[in-house]
C-alpha cells in the first residue's frame, strides 16, 4: 500500500521542507497521481488565499478557532499569522485586571456600607418635652411665643 504525502504536501507548497525532504516528496509526486491532484488543489487554494489580501477573520473568531486545535500541536504558519500581536494581548489582560479590581472595590465598598448600617445612635432615645421647654422659654422671654398646638390649654385661641 502506497503512503501518500499528507501534511508534507502542504509543507512543500509553503516551502518549508529541507532540500532532502523536498527531493523525496517530488520523487513521490512523480509517481503518484493522487498526490499531484492534491498538490494542485493546494496551490490553487493558496493563490486564492493570497488574492483575498489582508482580509482576515476577527480576533474573537481567530481565538475560537485556535482553541479548537490540539494543545501543543503543530500550528500552520497561516494560523499563527492571525494571532493578536503581543501589545494587544497585554492591553486585553490589563483591561481584564482593571475591571476585576474595580468590581472588587465596588463590592467591598458596598459590603462595608451595608455592614455600617443598623448601628443604634449613641445615648438614650429622647422625645423632647416640648411642653416643659415651652414653659421655660416663656419664663425666659418675657415675650409671646407662638402657642404650639401640642400644648393643650396653652392659651385662649381667638379665631
Amino acid at each position: 500500500m502506497t503512503r501518500h504525502l499528507g501534511q508534507r504536501l502542504s509543507a512543500l507548497i509553503d516551502g518549508e521542507l529541507s532540500d532532502t525532504q523536498r527531493e523525496r516528496v517530488l520523487a513521490h509526486l512523480a509517481g503518484c497521481e493522487d498526490c499531484r491532484r492534491e498538490a494542485a488543489a493546494l496551490r490553487m487554494l493558496k493563490r486564492r488565499m493570497h488574492a483575498l489580501g489582508d482580509a482576515g477573520a476577527g480576533d474573537a473568531l481567530t481565538w475560537r478557532l485556535l482553541a479548537l486545535g490540539p494543545a501543543g500541536g503543530q500550528r500552520p504558519a497561516a494560523r499563527r499569522a492571525h494571532r493578536p500581536p503581543a501589545p494587544r494581548r497585554r492591553r486585553y489582560a490589563w483591561s481584564l485586571a482593571a475591571a476585576g479590581v474595580v468590581t472588587a472595590g465596588l463590592g467591598l465598598t458596598g459590603a462595608v456600607f451595608l455592614a455600617g448600617g443598623g448601628r443604634p445612635p449613641p445615648g438614650p432615645k429622647v422625645v423632647p418635652a416640648v411642653d416643659v421647654f415651652m414653659v421655660q422659654h416663656a419664663i425666659t422671654t418675657g415675650q409671646v411665643p407662638a402657642r404650639p398646638s401640642s400644648v393643650p390649654g396653652a392659651g385662649t385661641k381667638v379665631p
Binding site: 418635652a129 416643659v132 414653659v135 419664663i139 422671654t141 418675657g142 402657642r147 400644648v151 390649654g153 392659651g155
Partner: peptide
C-alpha cells in the same frame, strides 16, 4: 422637671411685656 398636664399653665403670655 414637672411635666405639664392637659390643664397645664399657659406658656404664651409669660411676662409678655
Amino acid at each position: 422637671v414637672a411635666p405639664l398636664g392637659t390643664s397645664g399653665p399657659n406658656p404664651d403670655g409669660a411676662g409678655a411685656l
